[in-house]
Simulated scan of single mutants.
Amino acid sequence: MCAALYLLSTLAGYVLTSVLLLKCPAILHRRKRETFRSRHISHRGGAGENLENTMAAFRHAVELGTDMLELDCHLTKDEQVVVLHDDNLKRATGVSGDIANVAYTDLPPYLCRLGVTFQKECYCDGGEDKRIPLLKDVFEAFPDTPVNVDIKVNDDTLIKKVSELVIQYNREQLTVWGNSSNQIVRKCYKENPRIPLLFSLPRVLLLVGLFYTGLLPFFPLREQFLEIPMPSIISKLKDPSRMTKSQRLLTWLADTLLMRKALFDHLTARGIQVYIWVLNDEEDFQRAFNLGATGIMTDYPTKLKSFMEKNSLLKSD
């Protein structure tokens, strides 16, 4: 009987401590220093309004007032760091071939029309700019704009060269980098621990597990940015009637587990920014901000700006 009471009292003490630290993490953790805060993030520069990952897209987003540019990096055969999403050129240019096997000067231009990945049956018709840019072009053109760099492949040379460019352009406090791969993120941290990190997918799963077991408030986190999808948008990208019951259940479960205001509030209190991607309609914009997300990644920067203006959300907290 005494042992049972002791166990119950210990458990109650743990739960109360966990709840307290979840609400007030500063008791245990020093808040991470924020050199910028991004609410409006342009996915691939705004892939619904200009051809993705082009200088025209980035320029449009920055002129619009975006807080951050999101882009993807690969390495060419002659070891140039280029801004491109796919490792194969087929979807973007119509010419099949891995970018790692093509020199930069030999890269074909973008197609005139590209599908918008996160908008059902939607295409973007581009203007004159169809050139695949170099990462240094972006850094040179927008020296004061935060840039979110997705390292698309596990390549030590790519990681090293991105770090060198970040240092060269004095952007260690204006750049975020990483990938869903934990191995890539570990290499990024080892190469340059001064550049803020994204959570990899395994670390996101760990984060969720720690949150639901009550252990998160006690756990140190080196990452400074959490980027996660809103699972419910799958129903807008696919025909719900063609989804199986198990797919719908899995989507609901993932959405229920990930989209938690208590989790986002705790991370924000620790100085970790929470970005939700890729949202392209006002209903999802509203839900993300209601949940406490720091920022939203979108293919339609003009639409997001209009929503934020209408709801007085343009100024960072």
Rank of each mutant, 00 (worst) to 15 (best):
S180L: 14
K161H: 08
K160S: 14
L197S: 06
L205A: 15
S180A: 14
L165W: 14
N192S: 15
F142T: 04
P196R: 00
V166A: 11
N182K: 11
V147C: 06
Y189Q: 08
S200I: 10
P202M: 01
P143V: 15
L197T: 06
E164L: 06
C188Y: 04
I132L: 00
V153L: 01
N192Q: 14
E164M: 11
K130R: 15
V176D: 08
T157Q: 12
I132K: 01
S200R: 05
V149D: 04
V149N: 03
K161M: 15
T145A: 01
R171F: 03
V166P: 08
F139D: 09
S180V: 13
D137Q: 08
L174M: 13
V147S: 07
S200Y: 03
V138I: 08
V153E: 08
Q173V: 12
F199V: 02
G178T: 10
V166K: 05
L205N: 12
V166I: 15
F142A: 00
R171M: 08
R131N: 12
K161S: 10
D155K: 01
F139K: 05
A141R: 13
S200P: 03
R194D: 10
L205Q: 12
N154K: 01
K190T: 12
Y189L: 15
L206R: 09
L206D: 11
D155L: 05
Y189M: 13
P202N: 10
E140I: 13
F199K: 07
L158S: 00
S180D: 11
R186M: 11
V138T: 04
Q168F: 04
R131C: 09
W177M: 13
R194M: 13
D156M: 00
